[in-house]
Design a protein around this nucleic acid. Structure first.
Ligand SMILES: NC(=O)c1ccc[n+]([C@@H]2O[C@H](COP(=O)([O-])OP(=O)(O)OC[C@H]3O[C@@H](n4cnc5c(N)ncnc54)[C@H](O)[C@@H]3O)[C@@H](O)[C@H]2O)c1
Ligand SMILES: NC(=O)c1ccc[n+]([C@@H]2O[C@H](COP(=O)([O-])OP(=O)(O)OC[C@H]3O[C@@H](n4cnc5c(N)ncnc54)[C@H](O)[C@@H]3O)[C@@H](O)[C@H]2O)c1
Lengths: 214, 214
DNA sequence: TTTCAATAAGGAATTAATTCTTTAATGGCG
DNA sequence: CGCCATTAAAGAATTAATTCCTTATTGAAA
């Protein structure tokens, strides 16, 4: 029983987690409009989703709503940001400081969501040794020396044909969670977390839906 | 019966569609390595997914595999690209030519996936009237004049507080599919396709999984 | 030639996610 | 004060997605 609990802990469903930032964004807009309470009904109506889904999603957090009025805006924002991990600043390494990697390096938004890139790794001699927005770029071969720093998150923005190899290297150097921007899915040890962010995957869905309308 | 068919046509599951580009990327790598055949077993092993899922996903296309050897690489790439709509060039308008919008405007990758941005719309007088990489920027107020062009796809990269309003405007001007990059979900007519691409949503999942490991 | 291991593919079973239903609470209105 | 409409929340029912199971096929090895 206990073993089961440890292995198959009840996780928050991934679809719910992925929707939560959209609630957060909505509620922040509501705050800007001076609203004190928001209800799942209103959230749902404005976002075009099912109201019980909003309720259920929010119930995974420790937020409790008030019957007849909904959720109090300020505490809801606090709780959501905490729950989603946007309030604790996690440090991360970036692998592959090319056009996408550089964009992320300069992206102010990341910090707002609790992620701070503290170093980048690349192979290109033109950028290794330099600094970009205060973030130093090292040669990827030297990465293992950074293992003791204990940083757990790695952003993968290398060319697709290097993705698997670099992912392996990342794990070897202590990375436990990989934010993968390459179009391929990488194979890593089972306990390493991978989140794929394929920019173009939504296009496949969009085209399919659009074209299947005749 | 027929009515039911029209309304609730059997669609390819969205999760399957979202995975397909990753198969495509993988198979292109295989081709580069000179492989003539790939099997779902190998794809699955290398990508760390279930082999029957690969088979089932590919079965939504018209591809047929060969027992004992797998799928022929060249036809599989052709069929996948066609099926995903990456071979037909769709034209699109971009709304909000800010930092993200500009990046997409200059993104060479888009064309590779069958999307061509032919015009952008903004309100900023500093960029309205100018050209960026051959793409003219018009004032968003003038958008309705473009309706007759019949372009169906719109990319939404305006500030979050303008998202709903601009989305409405897009639909009014004939847009039938919105690629939404803002963190909020927008509400539009039921027959308008929306694909949300929230860059930071995967972070929520990653943090949750990482932190729930104690 | 025969056997065997690897495979696709269809359908069944299972699991996950969403939507529906019911209940209880309560603020606002008459 | 008493009703009513609105809401959260828990659990049931439904639907969607994934994984498992079975079958038939076939290239390669013995
Ligand atoms: N550019 C985009 O808009 C975009 C969008 C979506 C996805 N992607 C994906 O992101 C990845 C990177 O794209 P990009 O456009 O930035 O490519 P890029 O070529 O501009 O950048 C890749 C970087 O990785 C570095 N690199 C190569 N081998 C390396 C190694 N072994 N270790 C560390 N670094 C290494 C290169 O030196 C380069 O700086 C690709 O897989 C691409 O498919 C890019
Ligand atoms: N920059 C990023 O890396 C990033 C990443 C993920 C998501 N986003 C989201 O994408 C959106 C845009 O981000 P950004 O960083 O490019 O912002 P930005 O402020 O740089 O750009 C927004 C652009 O929209 C224009 N605009 C404003 N009102 C408009 C209107 N009514 N019609 C047309 N255009 C209008 C502005 O003039 C500006 O050019 C935001 O919602 C943001 O949350 C941005």
């Amino acid at each position: 029983m206990e073993e089961e609990n440890r292995k198959k802990r009840i996780l928050v469903p991934e679809p719910a987690l992925r929707r939560m930032p959209s609630y957060l964004a909505y509620i922040k807009l509501a705050r800007k409009d001076g609203m004190k309470y928001v209800s799942s009904t209103h959230i749902a109506r404005d976002m075009g989703v099912d109201p019980t889904q909003v309720t259920k999603d929010l119930s995974y957090t420790s937020i409790v709503g008030k019957t007849r009025v909904g959720y109090e805006v300020e505490p809801l924002i606090d709780e959501l940001e905490n729950f989603l991990g946007f309030r604790i600043m996690d440090e991360a390494y970036l692998f592959g400081a090319g056009s996408l990697g550089m964009a992320l390096l300069h992206d102010h938004g990341l910090k707002q969501f609790g992620l701070k890139v503290v170093a980048a790794f690349d192979v290109n001699p033109e950028i290794v040794g330099k600094n970009f927005g205060g973030v130093p770029v090292y040669h990827v071969d030297d990465f293992l020396q950074f293992k003791e720093k204990g940083i757990q998150i790695g952003i993968l923005t290398v060319p697709v044909e290097k993705a698997q190899e670099v992912a392996h290297w990342m794990v070897k150097g202590g990375i436990r969670a990989i934010w993968n921007f390459t179009p391929v899915r990488i194979k890593v040890e089972e306990d390493v977390i991978v989140q794929n962010t394929s920019l173009y995957a939504p296009l496949a869905v969009m085209f399919n839906r659009l074209h299947s309308k005749e």
